[in-house]
Amino acid sequence: MATASADAARKFDPGRAAEYETQSRIALAGYDACHELSACMLAAALGQGAPAHILVVGAGGGGQEIVTTGALEPAWRFTALDPSEPMLDLAVAKLRQHGLLDRTEIHLGYIDDLPVEARFDAATLIGVLHHIPGDQPKRELLRALAARLKPGAPLVLAGNRYAYASRPLLLAAWAERWRMHGAGVDEVQAKLGKILQGADPPHSEAAVATLLKEAGFEPPTWFFASLFWGACIARRLSSKS
């Protein structure tokens, strides 16, 4: 898993980090709504106002998971984890701007770098899994995450969940999304080419459910969709040690 995750992290260099927030909102129609609903799902699962420690895997960029959830639940603390230093630097700046840095532990690295005895009340994995090539590394990442959650703890998992070539109409609509925001024909094709070469999403919602089951999670509940993107919540099995 470390090699696959390291390969994924290298894509998020300073150039990509600098444009991340703007480009993410174009690539994902409903970017803010997805994060808002993720926060609402976690609050519903954990209970309003209850103290909690949330693991945010792939927190780099705008740190939007923490910004949104931290505003909803002032008693929650966070551990922000990301292997890309440029992306993590952006998140730190955003958390400082929103007054959330004192509620957040910052870790540059991978899930395996966290102590196994760490037990979080919940976790998020948003925009990460489709950057991990191959099913086995995806399983290993989810298992490592499950091992650091309390039994019954919820995980919000969001990302692309279809093989791109399997949904040509969605792919064409994605191209139109870029055109809608001013990209020319050549730029649209370049963006699609980068996406197709740089990610390996699970091939269906059923495939996501299987990966979660194999890692020790209950069946997921899906709550958001936008073209290839989907978001779900699943609890770590209570019986898993």
Rank of each mutant, 00 (worst) to 15 (best):
D135A: 07
Y162T: 12
P137L: 14
P137V: 03
R103E: 03
L145E: 00
Y110A: 10
R161D: 09
G159Y: 08
A163I: 15
N160P: 14
L145F: 09
P133Y: 06
L101F: 09
A118T: 08
A153D: 13
A118N: 08
A123D: 09
L114G: 01
A147I: 02
P115R: 08
R139T: 08
G152K: 07
V156F: 15
R103A: 13
T104N: 03
Q136H: 07
A144L: 12
F120E: 15
G109E: 10
Y162E: 07
G127L: 10
R148H: 01
R148E: 13
N160M: 13
A153G: 06
R161I: 13
P154V: 04
R119K: 06
D113T: 14
D112F: 04
D113I: 15
R161N: 06
G109I: 01
G127P: 12
A163W: 10
R119S: 07
H131F: 15
Y162K: 01
R103N: 13
I126M: 06
D135G: 10
I106Q: 03
V156Q: 02
L155H: 09
P151V: 05
G109Y: 00
L149T: 02
L129F: 13
A118H: 11
T104W: 00
P154A: 00
G127R: 13
I111K: 02
V156I: 15
P115L: 00
V128K: 01
N160V: 14
A122F: 01
V128D: 06
L155D: 08
G134K: 05
K150S: 13
Y164A: 01
P151E: 10
G109H: 15
G152F: 14
P137D: 08
L114K: 09
R161E: 08
I132S: 02
L114H: 06
L101K: 10
K138E: 08
A153H: 05
N160K: 14
N160F: 05
R103Y: 04
E117P: 01
L155R: 14
L101W: 14
T104P: 00
A153V: 05
E117N: 00
R143I: 03
I106H: 02
L114R: 12
Y162S: 12
P115N: 01
L149P: 05
D102K: 03
L142N: 15
I132A: 03
T104L: 05
D112M: 13
I111R: 00
I132N: 05
G152N: 09
A144C: 07
D135N: 11
D121E: 04
G159W: 02
I111E: 06
I126L: 13
I106S: 05
A147S: 12
Q136Y: 01
F120P: 10
Y164M: 00
P115V: 04
G127F: 07
V116G: 08
A146V: 11
T124W: 03
L157P: 11
L141G: 10
I106W: 09
R139Y: 12
E105C: 12
A163D: 11
L101C: 08
R161Y: 13
G134W: 02
A122G: 09
Y110R: 15
G109Q: 04
D121Q: 13
K138Q: 10
A146G: 04
A158F: 10
R143V: 09
G152D: 01
P151S: 00
L141F: 08
A146K: 00
E140I: 02
